[in-house]
């Protein structure tokens, strides 16, 4: 449903993305990895139509986002939920208002009804609505905020695709498992196509079986776990080097799983 076709993009005279192409099918889960500053967030911004490629195309369901009018872009954005790096919660509103924000702006529902649905959504993402609903985002922990952001994206439009920008960075192992569990649940239960940007390779290996490695604005790798392990590309090896061990561990776990199953 999302296709990035030979995209080039630069900020001023600094080229950020060079000839990037990849496709994400309906219901697919893709992990995008790469060093800091390699252009991962930029790719997500392009998909959402917040930025336009200088050459190449971003196609959502076959439609080019960038040539659209603002109205049509809105239609596209309804299909895609985005969880920004650090959540991007509106800090002047309560958690409940944040989660119900889309309905507040775009529906004629009364606030009581919206609050009910926001509370339900908070429950879905594993938070206690009575406890956090009336708090401000700044009073929550990082992991809670991330989950509120996911809830906000979900309640907006029933998206068919979700973009997660480093959803687990800076979380403790417990919170990380929570958020990853939620992402997997959405993917499996609702069939939501997902793009997860992350640095944490060990986690990435657990949730997806397709990986895209971005290095210096180029797609250095696109394929499954075994191919990734065997990949001889110097850039990919260089990026993966610190994570050899977690690789082995995950592979071993899988192997044990196979033996038992």
């Amino acid at each position: 449903m999302i296709e990035i076709r030979r995209v080039n993009f630069s900020y001023w005279d600094k080229q950020i993305l060079k000839d990037v192409s990849f496709v994400v099918d309906d219901g697919e889960m893709v992990v995008v990895m790469g060093p800091s500053g390699s252009g991962k967030s930029t790719i997500l911004r392009l998909i959402l139509g917040l930025e336009c490629p200088h050459s190449g195309q971003v196609l959502i369901d076959g439609q080019n986002v960038c040539v659209m009018k603002e109205k049509e872009k809105q239609q596209i954005r309804k299909k895609i939920g985005m969880v920004f790096q650090d959540g991007a919660l509106f800090d002047s509103m309560t958690v409940g208002e944040n989660v119900g924000y889309y309905l507040l702006e775009n529906s004629r529902l009364r606030w009581e009804e919206i609050a009910d649905r926001a509370a339900e959504m908070l429950g879905f993402v594993g938070l206690d609505p009575n406890e956090v609903g009336d708090k401000l985002p700044e009073e929550l922990s990082g992991g809670m905020r991330r989950r509120v952001a996911i809830g906000r994206a979900l309640l907006s439009t029933n998206p068919r695709a979700m973009l997660y920008d480093e959803p687990t960075t800076g979380l403790d192992p417990n919170a990380t498992q929570n958020v990853l569990g939620l992402i997997t649940k959405l993917h499996q239960e609702k069939g939501i196509a997902s793009i997860v940007v992350t640095h944490q390779i060990a986690d990435a290996l657990n949730i997806a079986d397709r990986f895209v490695v971005i290095y210096d604005g180029e797609v250095a790798f696109d394929g499954d776990q075994d191919t990734l392990r065997a990949c001889q590309d110097a850039r990919v090896k260089d990026f993966l080097l610190p994570f050899r061990e977690s690789f082995e561990r995950v592979a071993r776990k899988k192997f044990i799983g196979l033996e038992q199953g």
Binding site: R45, L48, L50, E70, Q74, R77, K78, M82, F84, Q85, D86, A88, L89, F90, D91, Y101, Y102, E105, N106, S156
Partner: peptide, 18 residues
Amino acid sequence: GAMKSSNQLDALVGFGID
């Protein structure tokens, strides 16, 4: 500026708000 640096402005656009 704070809203921009924490991506809140982009989030607004994502929700269909100018």
